[in-house]
Computed example of a mutant assay.
Amino acid sequence: MEDAHCTRDPASFAASQLGCKEHWDKVYDRELANFHESGEAGEVWFGEDVALKMVDWVCDNVSDKGARILDVGCGNGHLLAELADSGFTDLTGTDYSPQAIELARNVAGGSHAIRFEVQDFLDAADVARIAGDGGFDVVLDKGTYDAISLKPQDAAGGPAVDQAAIDAYPQSVAASLKDSGVFLITSCNWTEDELTARFSGLFACAGRVRHPTFRFGGAVGQTVTTIALKKI
């Protein structure tokens, strides 16, 4: 729930299988098998409405259909498929799960507007490889930072989160973007104020997407946060 007076330390989260690559490899193994069996593209994380609001924001705020756009943790590539349908022509999706990338390529069906690559987004060399010489105009994240915030600190899967990974992520986003590029992030773990604080020093808030709100204990909140952050 949104609370302008409360920001949490990432260490207050307990590590989860949702932050483990092995978990997502298994998820996309299943979804890839389902695709080959039934043609179903798989789950749209956070739901279709949230995804389409992100697409609408890009369409409303990025006038150049040739803008370079990166979706980090792209999963089945749903966001990029919607952007391709909206006329964008230079789209890249990356994920650390090879199974996710295989699924996304199958779902995209050879679209010339989208390329998909396996990428370790916490590795500086891999970030530079995908960004190339110019960098991206827009980076999208729908739940990837949430997953990284739950990454276990050790291979044994203990309760402590990997603070180094959490801290590395904003640097990777900045390194992926051109000067004054925009980062559009959707989270169900972090509020707008918390995201702005986590990415401060590298980014400034440049806009937000409104989602349905609820009221509890006199406070108004929403279960999903989407904000645009501009590289400074």
Rank of each mutant, 00 (worst) to 15 (best):
P170N: 07
R68S: 14
A81C: 10
A204F: 11
G158Q: 03
H211Y: 06
L177K: 04
I130R: 03
C205Y: 01
D141Q: 06
A4G: 02
L140I: 00
D56S: 10
S16T: 11
A219S: 03
A204L: 12
I69V: 15
A15I: 01
C74F: 08
W190A: 00
N76I: 13
S12Y: 02
D120Q: 10
A15R: 00
N106W: 02
R105V: 02
G39W: 06
W24F: 11
I148N: 04
L202W: 15
H23E: 09
I166E: 03
C20H: 01
L83V: 03
Q163D: 00
T196Q: 01
R68M: 05
D64K: 10
D141P: 09
L177I: 07
Y169T: 00
T191C: 05
S12K: 07
V161G: 03
A128I: 00
E22I: 04
I114W: 07
N189P: 00
A206W: 11
A156C: 06
L122N: 07
A156Q: 14
V44N: 10
A197I: 01
I69F: 01
P10H: 05
G201Y: 07
D56R: 15
F203C: 12
T196C: 11
G134M: 07
C188Q: 05
A108D: 05
S38W: 02
P152K: 13
F136C: 05
F216Y: 05
S97C: 09
N34H: 08
K151D: 01
E37V: 01
Q163N: 04
M54A: 02
A219Q: 12
A41N: 03
F136L: 02
E31C: 01
V58C: 08
F46D: 04
W45V: 12
R115D: 09
A33E: 14
D60L: 13
L195F: 04
D137L: 04
K21L: 15
H211C: 09
S97N: 04
H5A: 10
G221C: 06
Q119P: 01
D85L: 13
W57S: 06
R115S: 13
R129T: 13
V139E: 11
V62E: 12
G109A: 03
R30V: 14
V118Y: 05
H112F: 09
W45F: 14
A155N: 12
I101P: 02
I101T: 08
Y169M: 04
G143A: 07
C20D: 08
C20I: 02
L122A: 06
V173A: 01
A4E: 14
R68A: 13
D167S: 11
G109V: 13
D3T: 02
N106H: 09
E2H: 14
Q17K: 09
S63E: 09
N34M: 13
M1D: 09
A108M: 05
G143H: 04
K151R: 15
L52F: 03
E102K: 12
S38N: 09
W190R: 08
V139A: 15
A113Y: 12
K151L: 11
